[in-house]
Design a binder for these strands. Structure first.
Lengths: 80, 80, 80, 80
DNA sequence: ACGTTTGCGCTTTAGC
DNA sequence: GCTAAAGCGCAAACGT
C-alpha cells in the first residue's frame, strides 16, 4: 500500500473517532434537554435553572465576591 | 451585456455593501473594547460592567421578577 | 416535611442530574479536542478536518449542489 | 460631592458610552441582515453569499492553499 | 396555524 | 497560544 493510502486511512480513522464522539455528545445534549423539559413540565423555570447551574459551577468564595461587586455597581447606578 | 454579467454585477454590489457594513461594525466593536480597557485601567471590573450592561437592557419589571425567582431557587438550594 | 422542602428536593434532583450529564458532555468534548490535537501532532490540519466533518454530515446530493452553487458565485465574482 | 458619587458618575459614563456604541453596532448588524434578506428576495442564496464574504476576507494565496488542502483531504476520503 | 421567543451548535473573537 | 465568552444563524417550541 502506498504512503498516500496509509495517510488516507489514518485520516479516516481520526475523522471517524471524532464522528463517534460527536454522536455521543449529541446524545447527552439531548438527555440534558429532556431533563429541562421534564422540570419545566413540573412547573420549574428553566431559564432560572440554567442560571443556578452556572452559579453552582463557581466556588462559593468567588461567587460571593462576584455577587458583592455586582451589588456595589448596581447601587452606584441606582439599579434596584 | 449578458444576463450573466448583470447578475454578477448585482451580486457584487450586495457583497460589497455587506463588506462595508462589516467594516463599520468591526470599528464599533473595537471602540467598545477600548472603552472597557479604559474603564479597566481606571480600576473597574469589566466582567461586572458587562453584567450591568446586560441588566440595564431589561425592563425593570422583568429584571425584578427574574431576580426574585433566582433568589427563591437559591434559597431552596441553600446557595448563599 | 413541608411542601417547600419537597419542591426544593425535587429541584435539587433535577439540577444534579443536569450537572452529571454536563460533566459527561464535558468529558466527551475534551476527548474530541484530544483527537484533534493528536491529529495535529501527526501533521494534519485541524481546520480542514473540521470542514471535512461538516461535509460528511451532509448527504451527497446536497453537498454537491452547495458546491456547485459556490463555484457559480466564485466564477461570477472572479474568485479563482 | 463624595468620592463615591464621583466614582458612580464615572462608572455611569463608561456604561452609557458602551450602551451607545452597542446600539450603533446593533443597527449595523440589522443593516447587514437586511442586505442578506434583500439579496435573498432577489434570488440569491445567502448561505453561499456568506461563504463568499469569508473567502474574500482572505488573501488569494492563503485561500488557494486552503482550497488545495481541502481538495486533498476530500480525495483521500473519497468525497466527491 | 403563526410568529415571537427560546435553545443549540458553531464560529469567531476577546482575555490571560 | 489557549481557554473562555460572545455573536450568529438555524431550528424548535411555546403561547396567542
Amino acid at each position: 500500500m502506498s504512503e498516500g493510502n496509509v495517510a488516507a486511512s489514518q485520516l479516516l480513522q481520526y475523522i471517524e473517532r471524532i464522528e463517534r464522539l460527536e454522536e455521543e455528545k449529541k446524545g447527552i445534549s439531548d438527555d440534558i434537554k429532556d431533563v429541562y423539559l421534564e422540570a419545566k413540565a413540573t412547573g420549574y423555570d428553566t431559564k432560572t435553572m440554567r442560571a443556578i447551574v452556572q452559579l453552582r459551577k463557581m466556588n462559593p468564595h468567588d461567587r460571593q465576591e462576584m455577587d458583592a461587586l455586582l451589588e456595589t455597581y448596581k447601587s452606584a447606578l441606582g439599579i434596584e
